[in-house]
Simulated assay, not measured.
Amino acid sequence: MKKTIIALSYAFCWGVGVTLTKIALSEIAPTTLLIIQLSASVGFLVTACYLQNRQFPCSWHQLQQGIAGIFEPALAYMVSIFGVQLTTASNATLIGSSEVILTILFAAIFLGEKLTPIKVLLASISFLGIVLLMLQDTAGANQASLTGDLLVLLGTLFAVVYVLLSKKQISTVDPLQLTSSQQLVGLIATVSGFGILSVVNPNYEISAIGISWPFWLLAIGSGIMQYALAFLLYLIALQNLPVSHAAFYIALIPVFGVVSAIVILGEQLSLAQSIGGGLVIASSYCAHRLKPA
């Protein structure tokens, strides 16, 4: 029961965090928002580490342990930001949802987790459910760039690499310390990447000028939820769950995202979205019932 609550919690944090990010993007540029969110996450995690161990996770050894943070959140989110700008939001979401299937396949190849027909079937049902969840957005989209789609797919692959690296580490490292190290490395890589881009193209310059206090609080709060809490809970879950099992809960992120958009933004839920959400929930429940191989 505890494993299920933790798994549902990281899906909830990511899903609701996406909705809060959508709201924040109405006033804050994507690159600036990502830096603010990551900074808030690192501040929260570093403070938690200090309260727990009376030390900051900033030693060279700990930074080396956080190398996976280069892949996610740094590369995964940086690449995805540019991909989303070039393609449609619905395409980006659908491509991102392939993370469930890719994670299961990569876990079988690199971690030796058993790839069973039932896992493939449940992953396919989950993917179909996500397609139905996004059907309303897809119907209103007319343009998509192949370059944008490929960038989103690349970002998804970076996220899968992060999962594989983290799974190998989490059995010997404290989740809070590992999350803090990864997020700190991710922040350093993101600031460096955007800094270089801003020199090449001023459009990518990070600027917090003109952001109102409510949106500052929204950016900070969504950063703590979407990065600090979600990643921490995910790593805690990986301690006791196979990667392929934890992946099915990632599929619930769009479900929580759609529900939170209905509650917070007043969006309407279509019949197709209801069916899609039901399929995702059903596949995740069945995956939860599977015995780890």
Rank of each mutant, 00 (worst) to 15 (best):
L8W: 03
V152F: 06
F56N: 02
L271R: 11
Y77S: 13
R54K: 15
L51A: 14
L115M: 12
E99F: 05
V120G: 01
R54T: 07
A7K: 01
A29G: 11
T172L: 07
A11C: 07
S90W: 04
V79F: 07
I236E: 11
L34K: 03
S274W: 09
A251K: 02
I264S: 05
V16E: 03
S274R: 00
L150Q: 08
G277Y: 05
L94K: 00
Q37S: 10
F71D: 09
Q177D: 12
I209H: 10
K168M: 07
V280I: 09
L86W: 02
Q268W: 06
S260K: 07
P30S: 13
V243Y: 00
A251I: 08
S97Y: 12
I275N: 05
S41G: 15
N142G: 14
S222I: 08
Q169R: 14
A141N: 11
A107N: 02
I211M: 07
V46W: 12
I188A: 15
A107C: 05
S97I: 07
I23W: 04
A48H: 03
Q55I: 06
N142R: 11
Q55G: 11
L218G: 02
C58W: 14
S97P: 00
L34G: 08
A228M: 03
A228V: 05
F194K: 01
N53I: 04
C13I: 04
K3E: 14
